[in-house]
């Protein structure tokens, strides 16, 4: 029975990892169609570096992810502080809308944002993409920061208020330093979400501003592209490094 169990668990892991390992192995395969092993090569990696389209899309992806994560971290932190500190009219609606972002399927959010940008006459490209990415990252920052804030001793804030600190001072001198690990974790999570998104980006960006997942999408739709294997290998490793970092950051703060 024990052996059956171990075998079963091993088979599931095989199912989870085999496609990724095959991809990584193919990225070093000299054969163009990857049907046979024809020896080691790094030429697909060089091809990526030499492709201006891909490099451009990669840089665009990083720019959007960096800006979206940073702005979502700022706005999301303010949102979490609002929910934690104050009671205000429309608080329920505020929470409800955050819930809507998390629960509504990507495609529904994608078309609703597309409709908004078209109605406002906003050009589909950098700006529309950035605004959309900030929006879908927001609830994750709010939740991360809020859950850390609710673990605090609120006496700290009351003490500061009693000693005459204004709302800004309380935020800047007390809440922000204490919440910082969660803000950073929220930033990293947002960065990953932004890099990973396909569906929303597909709708809200135009040919003037192409990002990597969309570039890959149009490449692989047309057939086998060995340089995509190399690119996929790199893209597999980036979030692994990033999220591990964020994981250890939170873990360290807990202990």
């Amino acid at each position: 029975m024990r052996r059956v169990k171990t075998l079963y668990v091993a088979l599931i892991y095989l199912f989870l990892y085999l496609p990724i390992f095959v991809l990584i192995a193919s990225s070093f395969n000299a054969s163009k169609y990857g049907t046979r092993w024809e020896g080691w090569t790094l030429k697909w990696y060089y091809q990526i570096i030499d492709s201006p389209l891909l490099m451009h899309a990669a840089i665009n992806t990083l720019i959007i992810a960096f800006l979206a994560a940073t702005l979502a971290a700022v706005i999301g932190t303010l949102g979490a502080v609002s929910l934690y500190r104050w009671r205000f009219a429309g608080k329920k609606a505020f929470e409800g809308l955050l819930f809507v972002i998390m629960m509504s399927p990507d495609i529904v959010m994608a078309i609703s944002l597309l409709a908004l940008f078209i109605a406002l006459g906003i050009h589909l490209g950098f700006m529309s993409l950035l605004l959309s990415h900030i929006t879908f990252c927001l609830p994750f920052v709010v939740i991360t920061v809020y859950s850390r804030l609710s673990g605090f001793d609120s006496a700290l804030i009351e003490a500061a208020r009693d000693l005459g600190a204004g709302e800004w001072h309380v935020f800047y001198r007390i809440i922000l330093p204490l919440a910082m690990p969660a803000v950073l974790a929220g930033w990293l999570l947002s960065f990953t979400l932004s890099v990973d998104d396909v569906i929303v980006s597909f709708f809200v960006t135009g040919p003037s501003f192409e990002i990597l997942p969309l570039r890959i999408y149009s490449m692989v739709r047309l057939g086998v592209k060995p340089e995509v294997n190399a690119l996929a290998t790199i893209l597999f490793l980036i979030p692994v490094v990033f999220v591990s970092f964020s994981y250890f950051l939170l873990k360290e703060k807990k202990s």
């Binding site: 989870l16 990724i20 095959v22 990973d196 396909v198 890959i216 597999f236 979030p239």
Partner: peptide, 21 residues
Amino acid sequence: LLVIIPFWTNSLIRTYAIRSL
């Protein structure tokens, strides 16, 4: 953690990986 790691990768890339398989 080993279950979660593949799911950090872009799901488009994972779809592509399944296609090669």
